[in-house]
């Protein structure tokens, strides 16, 4: 096993981790990026229109550009899932692939979020049979069909808009009113004649015949009917922070389960920094631009920490 000790290991390959790497390269920090979900959540976005410099770009394309920029500095992006992190004598051991590990003086956690589930009957049963968490992946299976989108965020609105160009009809179901998406999105989806918004309503069950989704059940009637007949249900209700790795290290979380960070992206554990959607720096305002900014800040903090010779 390689006994080398890196200055830094970045865990996560989304915008936060990739930007941290670009800055770490410019600070000449000897580092590596570890993560199997290239581009993170960004790679699932159908289109991005609020990242400066790109009027409109597919999420996957933007993610690829960020990865190219990381690799142009000669940094390796190792496509492995981290299975554990240990701290021993001031050095972090990052484990993957069963027994393998790499060592570093500092860690940036940029593991983002996993998709939140509705936790209603039928959701797991019909996964891949009408239940989906990825509009860009699965939208095309519902050409000229009827679907629902559950959620009220920008991501839900973007997904609804994207799907409205494919399906015959889409219901957007949100538990509150109005949508929490930007006014830009509200206006855009209100213009589409095949989008119907159902406010202050929850989906309580997903029903189907053996093979696939046929209906959803609501917690209150909509147009005198508590069930909607449809072919697919897309779920965009935010993310659950990926903190499984940091909990054993004693990294503090906030009330919603996100990693608590100071304004310079430090956690309560010396040598561990966090950035992007997993961190609580911007509340639940999770944007590509906030993730990249936090990644840059985290790399700067690592640089100052290492230069300070504290360890």
């Amino acid at each position: 096993m390689d006994n080398k000790i890196y200055d830094l290991i970045i865990i996560g390959t989304g915008p936060a981790g990739l930007t941290a790497s670009i800055y770490a390269s410019r600070y000449h920090l000897n580092h590596l990026v570890l993560g199997s979900k290239e581009g993170g959540s960004l790679s699932l976005a159908a289109e991005v229109e609020n990242y400066p410099g790109f009027k409109k770009i597919a999420g996957l394309d933007l993610a690829n550009k960020m990865m190219e920029q990381v690799e142009a500095f000669g940094v390796e992006i190792l496509a492995k899932e981290t299975t554990g992190i240990e701290k021993k004598d001031g050095v972090f051991k990052v484990q993957f692939d069963g027994g393998k590990f790499l060592q570093a003086k500092t860690i940036i956690i940029a593991t983002g979020t996993e998709r939140r589930k509705l936790n209603v009957p039928g959701e797991t049963e019909y996964l891949g049979k009408g239940v989906s968490y990825c509009t860009t992946c699965d939208g095309n299976f519902f050409k000229e069909k009827v679907v629902a989108m559950v959620g009220g965020s920008n991501a839900a609105a973007l997904g609804t808009y994207h799907l409205s160009n494919i399906v015959s009809k889409i219901y957007l179901i949100y538990r509150k009113k109005p949508l929490r998406a930007e006014p830009f999105w509200r206006e855009r989806i209100e213009k589409e004649s095949n989008i119907e918004i159902i406010y202050e309503t929850n989906v309580v069950e997903i029903l189907g015949d053996e093979g696939k989704v046929t209906k959803i059940k609501l917690d209150k009637p909509y147009k005198n009917n508590q069930e909607l007949t449809l072919d697919g249900v897309f779920i965009e209700i935010g993310g659950v922070p990926g903190t499984q790795l940091t909990i054993p290290l004693g990294v503090d979380l906030d009330g919603s389960g996100f990693i608590k960070v100071s304004s310079d992206m430090k956690t309560n554990i010396e040598g561990i920094f966090a950035a992007g959607d997993v961190a609580n720096a911007t509340g639940e305002f999770h944007q590509i631009v906030t993730a990249t900014a936090e990644g840059a800040l985290a790399a700067n903090s690592v640089y100052k920490y290492l230069k300070g010779g504290q360890k």
Partner: peptide
């Protein structure tokens, strides 16, 4: 399919 991000991973 080539439109699918996770498929490319």
């Amino acid at each position: 399919a080539n439109w699918c991000g996770p498929c490319k991973m």
